[in-house]
């Protein structure tokens, strides 16, 4: 049995469900490529945010070679979609959504703050010095 895939951390999932080509002959626009969340994230980090592969792999919680492989496959899929006039569909993949986790600086437990009105304190030890782990990692 192969080793389990490390979940790839994603800060924000893509805001679209897909892209479709337009202005082409309807017969030629057929089929779709499945762009995984982690591939979208790889393109975003490396090409949009202009990060090096090393910085990006740390953010996603994977090794640099793994990041390079995901990025490579993402570029190939986008290129295939453009050249072969296919639509792009975003698919969940092996992602783990890294949304709004906070860490208590005293007991180190992780927790979420679901609604903005909630008190910004650790639910376990009531300590008020907490940090957003996503923001601290991004620096």
């Amino acid at each position: 049995m192969p080793r389990k895939r490390t979940p790839r951390k994603i800060v924000e999932p893509p805001k679209f469900k897909g892209f479709r080509p337009y202005g082409c002959n309807n017969d030629s626009a057929k089929g779709e490529v499945e762009l995984l969340y982690e591939e979208y994230e790889a393109i975003k980090l490396a090409d949009y945010d202009g990060m090096s592969h090393h910085e990006a792999c740390v953010l996603m919680g994977i090794s640099r070679p793994t990041f390079a492989r995901i990025y490579e496959s993402a570029r190939r899929k986008v290129a295939a979609a453009l050249v072969e006039v296919k639509s792009i569909k975003s698919v969940y993949g092996n992602a783990s959504l890294e949304g709004n986790w906070f860490k208590c600086t005293k007991c180190f437990n992780l927790f979420t703050i679901p609604s903005p009105g909630t008190k910004m304190a650790c639910p376990i030890c009531k300590f008020e010095e907490i940090e957003n782990i996503n923001k601290s990692k991004r620096i």
């Binding site: 979940p7 992602a95 959504l97 992780l110 927790f111 979420t112 679901p114 909630t118 376990i124």
Partner: peptide, 17 residues
């Protein structure tokens, strides 16, 4: 990931000990 997504949507606070 699925459990977190769902519980987040319904504003349940999650704590990881």
């Amino acid at each position: 990931p699925k459990a977190k997504e769902m519980l987040d949507k319904f504003k349940v606070q999650l704590v990881k000990i």
